[in-house]
Design a protein around this nucleic acid. Structure first.
Lengths: 235, 235
DNA sequence: TTATGCATTATGTATGACATAATAAAAATA
DNA sequence: TATTTTTATTATGTCATACATAATGCATAA
């Protein structure tokens, strides 16, 4: 055999473990649409027999699917296919302490991107009740002389409400995932010190724009509102 | 005992399995910062002994951490703590076929939010080489008479490049995760039919703005560029 | 008809054994 | 002595078996 084809054989050598293969096989089973949400998959022993591996391996593969949120297994009923709550799953494993600094900084940035980008969805889906609630929140807004660091709760209440208005649950979950990270990055020495803690467009200003303005105006205002954060990133 | 406190006792009944507890215990171990990235955790048998459970349970708990990307285990060295590549992990489990329609639609929306919101990062971090590459990509842009459905590749190349310019790897991974979803939603009957396939701001137009304009202008232009998608969501 | 209890069944847990791969120690070779 | 080869050790990977536990459905009794 020529050395080239030999090397090809090497490179294509299957280094994956047994469990890997079984996992792939099971995932493919789901992909093939043969199984829909709510359907139950074969019992562990049956799978073990059909795939010719031990129950241990099957269990481990199934466990992976379970951690990924693809299935749920009940005591007697066996395992049933579920629609995975992705961000629910990850938020569990997102732990600022175990993420490297670069990633943390990037997730910090991600929040800024989201809040500027979601303008259209706010304007499209906001209700009078939402505006009322926003006004109630900003009525308690601390005045401009205070550092917002002291007002985390108010920040979360206001911005959280904005996410809620978009009506996008996935987005909301994403925010919940980002929240502890944002807080962590804020307090860690990861970013530059905040030189000037100016207050730009206030929460009240944002609400005014939501009520009387346009998505364009909102994006610019939000960008301005977040200037304190941007300056720590860019300067 | 009063019925109320009795019920409280019931509600606080610990329904979690052994593995759940062990998992929680291990995760807390990591959180406590006693262990940093690169450190190795005790051997399975040692853990089993110390926690008073079987090796089976330990293995399953460790496996969960591994799926979540918190640890990696090597044959002899035992398990070592790793910095999880969150989005790398989930993109593996994000499978349009197993996600429910509501979630799919929301992820579709998420892309629109990101691309409008990331303007500032593009302008802040773009290099002359990037602009050159963008121009090269748009030089092959299909003319306005064609439906962009026929030009998915070009779409991905252009928009992918924009993500790349932001220099935010997490964002990029996030996009890679969203990509198959976006494609899927597009082709499924999930959204309204596209009534008018107009061409708004073109890719070339976006590049012009990147070169000569401002983040504000870019956001508005991108919003316009994505109008076809928005109209399918809003109308 | 409605509880109650019982048998069944599939997952959860425990145990012991061996396979495999990575490492370190020991031995052999130059 | 330095370097390579062999061997032993060790921790994870896989297998097999047994029993525990909880959920389900059926049968039985009130």
């Amino acid at each position: 055999m020529a050395i080239n084809s030999l090397m090809e054989d090497f490179s294509s050598l299957d280094t994956s473990s047994l469990v890997d293969k079984v996992e792939a096989k099971l995932v493919q089973l789901l992909k093939d649409q043969k199984l829909n949400v709510g359907d139950s998959i074969p019992k562990e022993l049956e799978l073990a027999e059909r795939l010719g591996v031990s129950r241990t391996v099957i269990r481990e593969a199934l466990l992976r699917l379970r951690v990924m949120g693809l299935i749920e297994s009940k005591k007697k009923k066996g395992a049933v296919i579920t629609s995975p709550d992705i961000f629910g799953i990850i938020s569990k494993s997102v732990n600022p302490h175990v993420l490297d600094q670069a990633t943390l900084k990037e997730m910090f940035e991600l929040r800024l991107i989201l809040e500027i980008g979601m303008a259209d969805f706010i304007f499209q889906r906001i209700s009078p009740a939402d505006i009322k609630e926003l006004k109630k929140i900003v009525s308690k807004e601390p005045d401009a002389t205070q550092d917002y660091l002291f007002n985390i709760d108010h920040e979360i209440a206001f911005h959280g409400k904005l996410y809620e208005i978009t009506g996008n649950e996935t987005l909301k979950k994403f925010q919940r995932m980002l929240l502890p990270v944002f807080d962590y990055v804020h307090h860690s020495g990861l970013l530059k010190k905040q030189v000037s803690i100016k207050r730009y467009v206030s929460h009240k200003g944002l609400v005014d724009i939501i009520e009387n303005g346009s998505p364009e105006m909102f994006r610019n205002a939000m960008r301005n509102h977040l200037e304190n954060h941007f300056s720590r990133l860019f300067e």
